[in-house]
Nucleic acid binder design. Structure first.
Lengths: 121, 121
DNA sequence: ATCGTTTATCGTAGATATACGATAATAAGA
DNA sequence: TCTTATTATCGTATATCTACGATAAACGAT
């Protein structure tokens, strides 16, 4: 399957870019506010940054993220949940661990959403 | 003064674009999450959309925004306050009214912030 | 089967967000 | 001055967010 790497297949939202034009205005605004809420906390911005900058051949499990943040494990787990629900990241169970990665093309998707929601383009 | 139009001078953040490179990583993440929180509600996205799409020769007072949203005046006023605090809009008192407009170049500023906070660019 | 590791979920406490009606503040106009 | 129009703020109720420790669930290894 395309996009597979080291056993972890990261979703790619690039193909959804054109779908934005077909969304209703209300859906567009809801979608933009949903994604914005995902980044509305410094810890979550940091998590996305970590996952975006991770080398392609390295994997990043929950524990790695916990170690990188000054928060309790349960708090980090909650932030990961929010990022999953708002569509920024993806998690894949690997034995007792969970391997996380960002959704490919999400930044571009976010920008296109913003352009359409705010400027009607 | 540059940027003045119909008596309302809208701030322009374009000149701050280069400052982003000089911000600390933490400030960058805080700034990105702050701006994201501004758009983290559909009503606020709609307000920014209204102000972005307003003809340059027309002004937009609080009452216009209240009429465009299905919310009570006090709720809209609160959302306007959040948008002011997070840096998306600006208000100028004009008699008993308050005239609102977006900050010029904010979308570009937001994107640059995102690029640096998430990708270190 | 049992133990240790890893991660999600539960329970909880305090803070913040969201909505509304009511009220206060400000300015224009009669 | 008094009234009207406009907008911000107050008070309040409910919901969501954020953090933590404790516990549960899932899995590999012994």
């Amino acid at each position: 399957m395309k996009g597979e790497r080291e056993g972890l297949k990261c979703a790619d939202i690039s193909s959804e870019l054109l779908e934005i034009q077909r969304m209703s205005e209300d859906d567009c605004k809801r979608e933009l506010s949903r994604l914005s809420k995902g980044l509305a906390h410094p810890a979550r911005v940091e998590i996305v940054r970590i996952l975006e900058n991770k080398p392609l051949d390295k994997r990043c499990v929950c524990g790695d993220i916990v170690n990188a943040l000054p928060l309790a494990q349960s708090s980090v787990s909650q932030h990961l949940k929010v990022l999953k629900e708002t569509g920024w990241i993806q998690g894949e169970i690997d034995g007792p661990r969970v391997c996380y990665c960002t959704i490919k093309g999400m930044s571009e998707y976010y920008l296109a959403l913003m352009n359409r929601a705010l400027h009607g383009v």
